[in-house]
Design a protein around this nucleic acid. Sequence first.
RNA 1: GGGCCUAUGGUGUAACGGAUAGCACAACCGGCUUCGGACCGGUUAAUGGGGGUUCGAAUCCUCCUAGGCCCA
Length: 562
Amino acid sequence: MFKESVINLLWKEVGISKEEINRLLEMPPQEEMGDWALPCFELAKIMKKAPVKIAGDISSKLKNKLPKEISSIKSVNGYVNFFINKDLLATQIIKEILDKKEKYGSENMGDGEKVLVEHTSLNPNSEPHVGRARNAIIGDSIVRLLRFQNYEPEVHFYINDVSKQVAIIALGCKGNETLDEMLKIYIEMTKKVEKNAKLEQEVFKILSKIEEGDKKTIEKTEKIVEHAVKGQVKVLSHLGIKYDKFDFESEYIKAGQDLIEDFDKTGKLFKDKDGRFVLDESGCELEKEMRAPMLVLTRSNGTGLYVLRDLAYNIEKLKKTQSNIIILGEEQKLYFKQLAIALDMINKLAPRVVHYSFVLIKTKEGKSKMSTRRGEVVMLKEFINEAIKKAKEEIAKRKSKGNAEEIAKAAIKYSMLKVDENKNIVFDWEEALNFEGESGPYLQYSVARANSILEKIKKEKKNNLKIKASDKLKLGKEEISLTKQLALFKNAVHEASKQLAPHIIATYSYELAKKFNEFYATCPVMNAKGLQKSFRIELVRATIPVLENSLNILGISPIKKM
RNA sequence: GGGCCUAUGGUGUAACGGAUAGCACAACCGGCUUCGGACCGGUUAAUGGGGGUUCGAAUCCUCCUAGGCCCA
């Protein structure tokens, strides 16, 4: 948004470094105040003059030296406010968007670099509930964001097939059960095992065989595990979430054991009184977070614990690329820190981690974490089905031609992505299935409206004027606001990529859609004339790819009709 | 008991330390002889509490309260 022009202007005339100006420049809270503002309060200290005086001096000094990108300048309450040339911005930004189309907004941050993203990684004992789906939906959106930035993401799903849970399932299941049945068996078996010591011993027997890498046992459990994962992935595929590779924990038993030697060399490994290998992680930031910053790596009998295989797995991933990202629930924060410290001890790079907070559910007592066992849970499948049902109702009500699945998907994803990843979501059916206001379907609706205008224009077959940079467009409030929002897409992409935070894109797309609808309501395109009509057509034409690009990052289909 | 995260209208949320705290849902009022009413306009309504830093705090520090997560 001509920030460069503002910086250059100030730099030449005011005598502060470009970096400093860049840091100070901000966008005024109201559009009427201007497009860029330089607050002069910090300068007041250095210059030993009142901010109001500085702002006044700067603005009168620059008033007659404005480049064509800046149309006017004003000093208000210690701020120097810059008004950019909207005609120029509009023509330039529209041209840029239409030139770059699906690439518009991308900074080519990745430049083809391979990046490995691990997300979802559900335990293979039941189908995903909405809480777990947040992991997959955020992960998928990050993958899309990275792809947009020209990284080459490879999506991995880590399967915890070495666990007591798997042993319990192996004891109770044949391997041909549905996920629902499997879950029931798992819950029943867990209860039985709790009460029956003999049964529990059997479970541990299976577990230790798996942990020891016993091929026959693993082969047997593998079938059940694969079957379970297949079921999970199928549900997630309804949301358009895909994986490139599935990695089994059981494949890292050997590599994990071998790591003991590496850790031994660090001098931080010792055997505790029970004969377990323990890694001493004291002396670092964990000191205040844990009473004893120790990481237990093995059992007394020498078999490796989960973390050892996890370490080996993360080292394996590094063979493909040094750029690793992992999406983990908030419950894993401390565990992950311990893992990262351990990796660092043997000079291995830990993945960059994105944590997200749980989806809570309303209960009689208030709200709590979703729990399959207590039955306080919304399954993803159920959520999808309900959303499709609602979408069909809406379509019937409007007698429109919409794709119920895509609309449902949009509603689900948007409801999960719009909230800051660090915040809990309290699941609410009514809100999640609301298709009005700030929602996925609203975004799709905006795309559909924009496309509908272009369809009508196409039928007119008139030659519209080409807009030029020199044209006086006499833009209205809504046109300017939409234009600026189009220009701001780059900022949203930049911030979202830097922070790996899809909610920034979600918030941006909603604002863009809102501004488009405001434009739609006040600025008729078909009935406009001459240059104004041409401009509005171009503006609609430019809005579509930006909406599409942001929706694609969110994993929402920008459908043309609904 | 210790650590991490969170707290904004009735509800859900936004806001690089910057100007009058933005938006949605709900409620109420209004807008189709005009490109799709899953829309648009308007009204009511909010920074958990106490200290501090700063020219300026929802934002930073500190104590307290409440919730989520982890360690014990």
